[in-house]
Protein backbone atom coordinates (compact mmCIF):
# COMPACT_ATOMS: atom_id res chain seq x y z
CA UNK A 1 0.00 0.00 0.00
CA UNK A 2 2.07 2.89 -1.29
CA UNK A 3 2.10 5.67 -3.81
CA UNK A 4 5.11 6.14 -6.00
CA UNK A 5 6.07 9.76 -6.44
CA UNK A 6 8.91 10.50 -8.79
CA UNK A 7 10.04 6.92 -8.41
CA UNK A 8 10.01 6.81 -4.62
CA UNK A 9 7.38 4.94 -2.60
CA UNK A 10 5.44 6.68 0.13
CA UNK A 11 3.04 4.85 2.47
CA UNK A 12 -0.63 5.79 2.21
CA UNK A 13 -1.92 8.39 4.67
CA UNK A 14 -3.84 7.34 7.75
CA UNK A 15 -6.58 9.89 7.20
CA UNK A 16 -8.55 9.03 4.05
CA UNK A 17 -9.54 12.68 3.73
CA UNK A 18 -6.00 13.58 2.67
CA UNK A 19 -6.02 14.83 -0.89
CA UNK A 20 -3.32 13.67 -3.24
CA UNK A 21 -2.20 17.30 -3.27
CA UNK A 22 -1.77 17.55 0.49
CA UNK A 23 -0.12 14.13 0.47
CA UNK A 24 2.43 15.35 -2.05
CA UNK A 25 3.04 18.67 -0.32
CA UNK A 26 3.05 17.52 3.29
CA UNK A 27 3.55 13.77 3.59
CA UNK A 28 6.01 13.48 0.73
CA UNK A 29 7.50 16.93 1.43
CA UNK A 30 7.40 17.97 -2.18
CA UNK A 31 5.93 21.48 -2.05
CA UNK A 32 6.63 22.23 -5.69
CA UNK A 33 3.05 21.20 -6.45
CA UNK A 34 0.90 24.19 -5.49
CA UNK A 35 -2.46 24.64 -3.82
CA UNK A 36 -4.25 27.54 -5.45
CA UNK A 37 -7.92 26.81 -4.94
CA UNK A 38 -8.23 23.24 -3.60
CA UNK A 39 -11.35 22.77 -5.76
CA UNK A 40 -10.20 21.99 -9.27
CA UNK A 41 -10.67 25.55 -10.45
CA UNK A 42 -7.13 26.75 -11.11
CA UNK A 43 -4.81 23.93 -12.14
CA UNK A 44 -1.90 24.90 -9.87
CA UNK A 45 -1.95 21.37 -8.40
CA UNK A 46 -1.61 19.61 -11.74
CA UNK A 47 0.48 16.43 -11.57
CA UNK A 48 0.85 13.42 -13.81
CA UNK A 49 -0.60 10.10 -12.68
CA UNK A 50 0.51 7.31 -14.94
CA UNK A 51 1.58 10.03 -17.34
CA UNK A 52 -1.89 11.62 -17.41
CA UNK A 53 -2.43 15.09 -15.96
CA UNK A 54 -5.01 15.57 -13.23
CA UNK A 55 -5.88 18.08 -10.53
CA UNK A 56 -4.32 16.48 -7.48
CA UNK A 57 -6.57 18.51 -5.16
CA UNK A 58 -9.67 16.62 -6.31
CA UNK A 59 -8.28 13.17 -5.74
CA UNK A 60 -7.97 11.31 -2.47
CA UNK A 61 -4.51 9.93 -1.82
CA UNK A 62 -5.92 6.59 -0.65
CA UNK A 63 -7.36 5.96 -4.08
CA UNK A 64 -3.89 6.11 -5.62
CA UNK A 65 -2.11 3.17 -4.06
CA UNK A 66 0.11 1.58 -6.64
CA UNK A 67 -0.04 4.63 -8.89
CA UNK A 68 3.00 6.33 -10.35
CA UNK A 69 2.84 10.06 -9.74
CA UNK A 70 5.16 12.57 -11.36
CA UNK A 71 5.41 16.07 -9.92
CA UNK A 72 7.35 19.12 -11.02
CA UNK A 73 10.32 17.85 -9.01
CA UNK A 74 10.24 14.69 -11.11
CA UNK A 75 10.33 16.50 -14.44
CA UNK A 76 13.65 18.16 -13.91
CA UNK A 77 15.97 19.63 -11.31
CA UNK A 78 18.01 22.76 -10.81
CA UNK A 79 21.00 20.93 -12.19
CA UNK A 80 19.10 19.28 -15.02
CA UNK A 81 15.89 21.10 -15.87
CA UNK A 82 13.60 19.64 -18.51
CA UNK A 83 13.29 21.30 -21.89
CA UNK A 84 9.92 22.71 -20.87
CA UNK A 85 11.31 24.11 -17.64
CA UNK A 86 14.17 25.77 -19.50
CA UNK A 87 11.80 27.17 -22.10
CA UNK A 88 9.63 28.74 -19.39
CA UNK A 89 12.72 30.54 -18.09
CA UNK A 90 13.86 31.57 -21.55
CA UNK A 91 10.45 32.98 -22.52
CA UNK A 92 9.58 34.43 -19.12
CA UNK A 93 6.57 32.13 -19.00
CA UNK A 94 5.80 33.09 -15.40
CA UNK A 95 5.99 35.98 -13.03
CA UNK A 96 5.17 35.17 -9.42
CA UNK A 97 5.88 31.51 -10.12
CA UNK A 98 3.01 30.05 -8.13
CA UNK A 99 1.00 28.59 -11.01
CA UNK A 100 4.19 27.63 -12.82
CA UNK A 101 4.77 24.03 -11.69
CA UNK A 102 1.18 23.24 -12.66
CA UNK A 103 1.59 25.00 -15.98
CA UNK A 104 4.74 23.02 -16.74
CA UNK A 105 3.24 19.67 -15.73
CA UNK A 106 0.23 20.51 -17.84
CA UNK A 107 2.27 21.62 -20.84
CA UNK A 108 4.43 18.52 -20.66
CA UNK A 109 1.40 16.23 -20.65
CA UNK A 110 -0.38 18.33 -23.23
CA UNK A 111 2.25 17.74 -25.89
CA UNK A 112 1.93 14.01 -25.32
CA UNK A 113 -1.85 14.27 -25.62
CA UNK A 114 -1.50 16.12 -28.89
CA UNK A 115 0.92 13.51 -30.15
CA UNK A 116 -1.60 10.83 -29.16
CA UNK A 117 -4.21 12.63 -31.24
CA UNK A 118 -6.63 13.53 -28.49
CA UNK A 119 -9.03 16.20 -29.74
CA UNK A 120 -9.94 19.41 -27.94
CA UNK A 121 -12.62 22.06 -28.14
CA UNK A 122 -10.37 23.89 -30.59
CA UNK A 123 -10.00 20.93 -32.95
CA UNK A 124 -11.65 21.78 -36.26
CA UNK A 125 -11.83 18.27 -37.67
CA UNK A 126 -12.57 15.66 -35.03
CA UNK A 127 -11.55 12.79 -37.25
CA UNK A 128 -8.16 14.16 -38.18
CA UNK A 129 -5.12 14.39 -35.98
CA UNK A 130 -5.14 17.76 -34.23
CA UNK A 131 -2.69 20.39 -35.43
CA UNK A 132 -0.46 22.30 -33.11
CA UNK A 133 -2.15 25.65 -33.67
CA UNK A 134 -1.95 28.49 -31.17
CA UNK A 135 -5.67 28.08 -30.52
CA UNK A 136 -5.15 24.38 -29.73
CA UNK A 137 -2.39 25.16 -27.25
CA UNK A 138 -4.39 27.94 -25.64
CA UNK A 139 -7.49 25.77 -25.25
CA UNK A 140 -5.51 22.84 -23.90
CA UNK A 141 -3.73 25.11 -21.42
CA UNK A 142 -6.91 26.80 -20.25
CA UNK A 143 -7.12 24.55 -17.22
CA UNK A 144 -4.19 26.40 -15.68
CA UNK A 145 -4.97 29.90 -14.51
CA UNK A 146 -2.19 32.49 -14.35
CA UNK A 147 -3.24 35.69 -12.64
CA UNK A 148 0.00 37.48 -13.43
CA UNK A 149 -1.02 37.19 -17.06
CA UNK A 150 1.91 35.27 -18.49
CA UNK A 151 -0.20 33.35 -20.99
CA UNK A 152 1.39 34.91 -24.04
CA UNK A 153 4.85 33.86 -22.85
CA UNK A 154 3.63 30.43 -21.78
CA UNK A 155 2.41 29.91 -25.33
CA UNK A 156 5.80 30.97 -26.66
CA UNK A 157 7.60 28.57 -24.32
CA UNK A 158 5.42 25.64 -25.34
CA UNK A 159 5.79 26.51 -29.01
CA UNK A 160 9.53 26.51 -28.56
CA UNK A 161 9.56 23.02 -27.05
CA UNK A 162 7.02 21.64 -29.49
CA UNK A 163 9.06 22.99 -32.38
CA UNK A 164 12.13 21.20 -31.11
CA UNK A 165 10.42 17.86 -30.79
CA UNK A 166 8.55 18.18 -34.07
Amino acid sequence: MAISINGQDYPLPEDPRTSLLDFIRRDARLPGTKKGCDHGQCGACTVLVGGVRINSCLSLAVTHDGDEVTTIEGLGTLAAPSAMQSAFVAHDGFQCGYCTPGQICSATAMLQELAAGWPSDATADLEAAPNLTDDEIRERMSGNLCRCGAYANILAAIRDVAGESA
Partner: peptide, 14 residues
Protein backbone atom coordinates in the same frame (compact mmCIF):
# COMPACT_ATOMS: atom_id res chain seq x y z
CA UNK B 1 13.58 31.64 -12.66
CA UNK B 2 15.07 28.19 -12.38
CA UNK B 3 13.87 27.91 -8.78
CA UNK B 4 10.35 28.74 -9.84
CA UNK B 5 10.17 26.35 -12.78
CA UNK B 6 11.59 23.45 -10.81
CA UNK B 7 9.25 23.94 -7.86
CA UNK B 8 12.09 24.80 -5.52
CA UNK B 9 11.18 28.42 -4.77
CA UNK B 10 9.63 28.21 -1.31
CA UNK B 11 6.38 30.10 -0.60
CA UNK B 12 5.02 31.05 2.80
CA UNK B 13 3.15 27.88 3.72
CA UNK B 14 5.87 25.56 2.47
Amino acid sequence: GLLKVTGTATYAAE
